[in-house]
Computed example of a mutant assay.
Amino acid sequence: MRNNKSLLHGLGAGLISGAVLLQLMDAAADARQTPIDVGSTPPVAEMDKEQLREAASQYYQVIEKDVTIYTQAQLDEQLQQLAQQQAASSQAVASQTVKEIHVYISNGMTASQVGELLTRSGIIADRTAFEEAMAKRQLNYKIVAGVYAFQPPAELSQVIAAITS
């Protein structure tokens, strides 16, 4: 039993010193935390709306109750709908403002003269492309005189079909 007695004394002393060290570490951890000064702010029940907002704004983002908060997906969806509405309204305005242009092609006009006339009136964008297409289809001398109505910008093939038929 004498051999065990010293062992038991060492074990008891170790437990006591361990408990003391644990209490020291716990006290040091409490001291590191920032103390909240309870005396400077009144209790929440006694605060008015403005004081409560100021106290909460130190730690939180304060937003009024009637303000709508959107997620990024909801915001993207609404922006997409708005862009579609604007595109539709701009197309409606553009379709209302498009006018019909009437051109008179007199008898004996060449393809280059007709190309110049159509380019100046804004019906086609490229005169050389018109002349090349007429030459490629061998329609240079098959232009029919008359008054033609086009809505710019017109397709080159539609213009050629209209003036040669």
Score class of each variant (00 low, 15 high):
136 K>R: 10
164 T>A: 01
16 I>C: 06
3 N>Q: 09
140 N>V: 11
43 P>A: 10
162 A>M: 13
133 A>Q: 10
120 R>V: 00
93 V>W: 11
38 V>E: 14
87 A>M: 05
28 A>N: 10
110 T>I: 06
163 I>T: 06
53 R>A: 10
104 Y>F: 14
80 Q>N: 01
162 A>G: 05
77 E>R: 11
89 S>W: 01
150 F>C: 08
105 I>D: 01
151 Q>W: 00
46 E>A: 10
100 E>H: 09
39 G>I: 03
129 A>Y: 02
144 V>I: 04
115 G>I: 06
44 V>Q: 10
10 G>D: 05
13 A>F: 05
152 P>T: 06
66 D>S: 11
151 Q>K: 15
156 L>S: 06
141 Y>Q: 06
97 T>R: 14
21 L>S: 08
81 Q>D: 06
98 V>D: 14
40 S>L: 14
58 Q>W: 03
8 L>I: 08
103 V>D: 03
143 I>F: 00
5 K>V: 09
47 M>W: 02
21 L>H: 05
58 Q>N: 03
115 G>N: 02
57 S>A: 15
94 A>E: 04
81 Q>T: 13
141 Y>W: 07
95 S>M: 13
74 Q>T: 08
28 A>Y: 15
81 Q>V: 13
83 A>Y: 00
32 R>T: 11
86 Q>P: 05
95 S>W: 03
54 E>H: 07
154 A>Q: 14
74 Q>L: 00
106 S>H: 07
126 D>Q: 07
153 P>R: 02
141 Y>N: 11
151 Q>V: 12
146 G>F: 04
89 S>A: 07
125 A>R: 07
3 N>P: 01
108 G>H: 06
68 T>W: 13
30 D>W: 10
130 F>L: 12
62 V>Y: 08
57 S>Y: 11
59 Y>Q: 04
119 T>I: 00
90 S>K: 08
45 A>W: 06
69 I>R: 15
72 Q>E: 04
141 Y>I: 04
5 K>W: 10
123 I>A: 01
18 G>E: 09
117 L>A: 00
112 S>R: 08
149 A>C: 03
4 N>S: 10
60 Y>S: 12
111 A>L: 04
109 M>A: 05
130 F>D: 02
35 P>G: 12
83 A>R: 02
139 L>S: 01
146 G>E: 00
35 P>F: 13
55 A>D: 04
16 I>Y: 03
56 A>R: 12
127 R>Y: 00
79 L>K: 15
139 L>R: 00
15 L>V: 13
25 M>F: 09
18 G>I: 04
44 V>K: 01
81 Q>F: 05
26 D>V: 13
11 L>R: 01
145 A>E: 03
125 A>K: 09
91 Q>F: 08
87 A>C: 07
44 V>N: 05
71 T>D: 04
42 P>L: 13
75 L>Y: 11
67 V>D: 02
1 M>Y: 08
38 V>Q: 12
109 M>L: 09
25 M>A: 15
112 S>Y: 07
92 A>F: 02
122 G>E: 00
4 N>W: 03
84 Q>A: 07
163 I>G: 02
88 A>T: 09
88 A>D: 12
44 V>M: 11
128 T>P: 06
29 A>H: 15
37 D>K: 11
105 I>R: 00
32 R>C: 04
20 V>A: 04
